[in-house]
Design a protein around this nucleic acid. Sequence first.
DNA 1: TCGGGATACGTGGACGTCCAAGCAGTTCGG
DNA 2: CCGAACTGCTTGGACGTCCACGTATCCCGA
Lengths: 208, 208
Amino acid sequence: MKDHPARREGPRPPHPSQARGEPRDGAIEARRGPLQGGRFSTSPPLPVDPIEEATRQWRAHGWDDAADGMAAVTSLMRAQAIVLSRVEEVLRPLGLSFARYELLMLLSFTRSGALPMARAGALLQVHPASVTNAATRLEAAGLVRRRPHPDDGRAVLVEITEEGRAVADKATAELNAGVVRPPGLTEEQVHTQVGVVRELRRGAGDFP
Amino acid sequence: MKDHPARREGPRPPHPSQARGEPRDGAIEARRGPLQGGRFSTSPPLPVDPIEEATRQWRAHGWDDAADGMAAVTSLMRAQAIVLSRVEEVLRPLGLSFARYELLMLLSFTRSGALPMARAGALLQVHPASVTNAATRLEAAGLVRRRPHPDDGRAVLVEITEEGRAVADKATAELNAGVVRPPGLTEEQVHTQVGVVRELRRGAGDFP
DNA sequence: TCGGGATACGTGGACGTCCAAGCAGTTCGG
DNA sequence: CCGAACTGCTTGGACGTCCACGTATCCCGA
């Protein structure tokens, strides 16, 4: 993880602008395209869609009935990488990763601003160890605080701090403006997408 | 990752191949449900869809126009985790991860069975370092071989071995049967999904 | 011809994700 | 009432992904 996959957080001194010997004031730097989600290799962009090409190969090998499925799988992987990349690009300046942002928002939606670690893990649908990881880093940044559970000696409550709320609000505003709202997809496409995935998730036992 | 977002492969406890003495006919072990994609926390399954709940919160906070977008993002992340989990569950017994499987298949589709590392990275759309990683592990398993590029002293060719082809074929057969073919989604849903993502990828500059 | 810039890889580090194991606190049945 | 089974959390590992560097090689223009 996945992957998932891409994340960082530290300082990134050499911005693409200077590495390229870009003389101009970085003023506009016009993101090529609507925020590209991660293209590597210095070579020129591919002339054809690699996934479509793979699908062709699949059929050529006689796996016709599996071709669409594989295309769906690889498409999904790539889509996740692209979107995650865009999200983290926005979050990075705030010292957040998407995982940490999710935990922070989850806590901010709570009445008391606190949740037992296990509960958070269940709601975020990630492994308990991942919650520990995120909580530790958020705590180091002063965005959350750990507190023993009053009624259960085993449990630990993660509680969002005032600063945490502030950062979460700022992050949300920037995400809404920079990634979510910009229509990369039609409203209908988004609905379809979410609907399809909901069935997938239900089938995986995410919820009844 | 992200990543992804999520992945593993090494520490399967009863090293299927060598480690343990014979695993008693673990024959049935009945996968609960249709191959669940990763549910943690011992607590009972959630009573409601956490993503839907989050969307509700989003609206309640006045971010109506961003609610659907956030739902799309989180849905995508979860979908990727679920599918990746299922795929790797099938590949694990073969000593493969999805990343390694992809590289292996890419090579198998080549006439000569070999590609320069950079070319592979471009086609798989992952960072060059990821290719190095996958190639190293596949090489250790004897599934690929590294060879200096005949015409370019900088480049390295990764070449699939006979054993690599055999493992790749076996993996493909099992993936087709165990994950891809089983209709978790309608054929139409799959097409829609792939189509939507294709636009996303095109927008990200994956291909013209 | 020659030197600077571009390209190809590998390495080390940061992160997130998962699993397995270990420790402590809770529950429940005999 | 006590021990076994169960929970909750943390730690240490493995893996994949990306970035920043360093090194070797290639290529092109002065």
